[in-house]
Each structure stands twice: as C-alpha cells, then as structure tokens.
Design a protein around this nucleic acid. Sequence first.
RNA 1: AGUGCGAUGGUGUAACGGUAGCAUCACAGACUCUGACUCUGUUUGUCUAGGUUCGAAUCCUAGUCGCACUACCA
Length: 555
Amino acid sequence: MSEERSLNFLEEIIENDIAAGKNNGRVHTRFPPEPNGYLHIGHATSICLNFGLARKYNGKCNLRFDDTNPVTEETEYVESIKNDIKWLGFEWDGEYYASDYFETLYEYAVTLIKKGFAYVDDSTAEEIAEMKGNLNTPGKESPCRSRSIEENLRLFEEMRDGKYKDGEKTLRAKIDMAHPNLLLRDPLMYRIKHEHHHRTGDQWCIYPMYDFAHGQSDSIEEITHSICTLEFIHHRPLYDWFIEQLGIFPSHQYEFARRNLTYTVMSKRKLLQLVNEKHVSGWNDPRMPTISGMRRRGYPAAALRQFSDTIGIARRENIVDIAMLEFCVRENLNKTSNRVMAVLDPVKLVITNYPEGKEDIFDAGNNPEDPNGGTRQVPFSRELWIEREDFMEVAAKKYFRLAPGNMVRLKSAYIVQCTGCLKDDAGNITEVHCTYLPESKSGHDTSGLTVKGTIHWVSVPHARTAEVRMYDRLFRIEDPSNEEGNFKDYINPDSMNVLPGVYIEPALAGAKPGEAVQFMRKGYFCVDTESTPDKLIFNRTVTLKDAWVKEVKKG
RNA sequence: AGUGCGAUGGUGUAACGGUAGCAUCACAGACUCUGACUCUGUUUGUCUAGGUUCGAAUCCUAGUCGCACUACCA
C-alpha cells in the first residue's frame, strides 16, 4: 500500500508542536503575495506548501495580500493571483489584506512610541543610509533618537495627518545602531507616501514597511506557522522583537530555500523585463514560468502539485532540473489526454493499389491508458499526409519506418509496403508510394504479419488545418541568471516556432480552448486561448520522449 | 571583512550513532498497432583533515567552498 514517507523539516516542526500541545494543536498558515506581479512556479510550490500543510494537519490557510506599498500594487494583480490559486486547486480560509490592518498597525506603532521603542526621524534617506554603517562598521545614532515620547507622539500624528511631504520624516524602531544584523539598526517602520492605494484610496499617506506589517498581520490572524523563503531569515529577530514588545499573539517564522529551475529565470524583475521588452507576448506567454503561462501552455494543475511534492523542501540552495517538471507533466497528460493524429511536416503518401474515390472509416481508440476513453472515427483514403521524417529513400540502420521495400502499420488502419517515391527537379521528395494489404485491417488483421514500425497519418481529402506553435525552453543555458553578462543574451532563439498549416484529423474540428490532446508520436498539445473554430491554434505543451532522436544523435 | 544559513550521485530529496534509500536524468534490454507508456537492469554520491565511538552522512574541532544581508521594496 502506501509507502511510509519521511517528513520534511517543516512537517517535523509542526508535528513536534502538535505533540507539545502548542496552540492547542492548531495549525494555521498563510500565503502572502504582494499584488505587484503575476505568480510563477516558485509561488506555486509555496502555495502547495502552505495550503498542503494546512490540509494535512486539518488546519487553515489564509490568503493575505501584502499590500503596503501603493506605488507598485494593483487590483489587476489581486484578481490574477486569486484565479491562479483556485486553478491550482486550493481554497483559502480567509481572504485578508495587510491594508485591512492599517488602523491597528498605527495603534501598535503608537504603543511602541509610548514604550520608548520608536521615534520619529527627520533624517533624509541618504542620511539614514549614511548613519547605518555597513557590514563591518557600526552605525551612528540619529540626532532625533532622543526625542521625547510626547514629541514623537505629536510628530507621528502629524505624519498621519499629512503635514509632511514624502520622505520628510520616518518612524523608526529604537533598537541598536551597532547591531551586527543591519536590520536591527533602528529599522524604518513607517514612511510617508502621498499615493493612492488600490484599496484604502487616499485615506492614508503613511504606510508601514514590510517588517512592521508582516509579522503583525500574522499575529492578528493568529498564524501559527509563518513560512517564507530563506532571504527573510535575517528578518526573524526583528519579526520576534516587534511581537514581543507589543505582547501580541506569538506567530513564528520558518524559512525554506526557494526553488530554482534550470533553463529559466524566476525573479519578478526579470520576468517583467521579458514582458516589457516584448521578448514574450505577455505574462501568460506559454514560455513564461508563470502559473498563467504554464496553464496556457497546457501544464495540468495536478502536474504542478505533483512537481511540488516530488522536489520536496529543504534549506539548501538548489536548482531543480526542468526535466523533473516535464516528467510530471507527461505523467499526468499520459493518463488523461486523448490520442489524435496530426502531421506537422507533411509529405504525401499514395497507396497505389487503393481505389480512387474509395474510403474507409476506422474506429480508433482515444486513449490506451483509459479503457473507458471511447473511440472516434477516422476517415481513410488513397492519399494520406505523413511526416516527412517517416520516409527515407535509403534507410539508416535501425530505422524501421518507410523506405523502399519496408513495411509499416498505418496507425489504426492497414499495413503498407513502400514501393518508391517521386521527386521534383531539385531532388526533393514530393510523393511516397506504397501498396496496402487489405487483410491487415486494424482489428481484423488476418495477414499474420508483424511490422516493427507504426506511423500516424491524416487523409488528404478529409484533413483540416491548424496553426501549431512549437514551444521550447525560453533559455538555451541551464542557469541564465548566474551566467556572465545579461540574462537576455541567453534567450533561446527557437523558443517558439509557428507551423501555420498543420494537417489534423477531422475529429479535432470542434476542439475547445484549453483542451489537451496527444498528437501521436509528436507530443502533448493543447488548444490555445486564442483559438477559434475558424482558426484552430495548438500549443505544444511538451514533447514525447524520443528514443529515435537519441539514436540519430549517436550517429 | 561582520553576522547568519548551508554543503549527500548530473539534478532534487531521505537516512535523526547501526545495510547510504527514493524520484528524475543518463545508459542497456524486454514489451509495443505511439521508437510513447509500462517493465527489468546498470553507472554515478556523504566538501576536506583530524578526533570521539565497537560503529559517523549524522556528534566534536579546524579548515574549504557556496549563498544571503549594507532599498523610505516585499
């Protein structure tokens, strides 16, 4: 039955907490995106982690938008984020916004001022940076540090009332300007921004910094396990300090290593650049590692969940081979997608002993992996389209497709024997000729023959056409971010190859956007969102593994 | 340089003082009306040097290497 699976380090922490009766055994996580961009595969694994942990331990998981910077945040992103999480198959327990807590946060700040743990600083950004010191020299205390509590209270209220311009004053925590952790050298709690906020409008002109919003929001929601990536590890002492001084619910932060993928970039800044500079068509371009891009590409949500599960979770840096993701995609699609025939690079096959005008209709199984997958009808005639690469005038060794004298099975139809080919003046093959064996009809084969090769085909008079977009990796090297020079220098020039007139079998005529199929022997494809009944468009989701390609490469 | 975190096959992840395992990749073979899927097998690993111990990936010491932190971003 089910194998005993070892726990990851977060599950261990949680199980220990439950065993110790911490929080009465309650588990409450949260996924805290900032609504300033689209979610990517890294977020997807974080979503699976946070929601998955809550699910596993009968807990809850909130969705909380970390919207404390009105300059970059927009409602458009809120909607796309919610949509992506739902598509991934998760439901949040509470939908919250850090901006919901602005009033409470303000009161918390007042509390800290009253306790002498915060002060208003008149220093400019440059002065603050100057006084901060650096990695090996301690900082200097601001002249404002010794202001009286009464004055701080008055000034902070005036900041809120809009009496000061952007950057004129800040509220800082009073901790230790000589602390080896730079974040503890009197970090900023509030800054002035006369900006319109996507939810609170013009109600506020002071906004809390991440460090004075995130932990407090966790605490307000009584989050038990606040999970974030490793770069926030230096923030944890500050996270704990604020909670302790405030005496509020003690949420705890735990960090894990973000997961990187080969042949891609993950930072929002770089992704934004790809979009803005039109290297891709948008955030949901099928080559993008965004959730919306992968969805459009045809990656099933279940594959993303499986991927997240498979790669696990740890605290060491890593770069996951994209082959792992592709494996998960293939494994899911193999079980669920119907097989159909499409000829991407066509050459005509003429069956010289098949009467002109005659046709057969074959029932072809939709999915060998699914006994209840049903069948569809596929028309057959004297002239068929086949792949150009399925014929060789002189067969290479181990090549068992069409070549003069060779026999192959036409999938779901007859066995044919190649008799030769026609060429144009330039020597290009224009037609392949063969004869068929009537007694080899699929399902009623009495020929007694077995052939090594089976190829796919589409009947010429019955064929429909579609545009097929052949996608490949966006970058041509494993780790574009770590390479010398600009990451954009490593964009794969062949990341998208559009085939305008691919022949597809007629059963595909009514395919709807989002529908996933396997073009037999060619890969998994899905109908693009831009597809219409008049102009069908397919995206290549992922290729099939191809032992023949490897054989050819070996030479 | 200061502080913190980390180091297990090509990649990801287990082993919590007692047989270095799983997945993927690669390779070889079987099967096949998809050169797919499936099945079988193979190669490849504990950063280094000491120490503790009957026994060390695990504990200790010293080193090496990598990453993060010096935004009024999150």
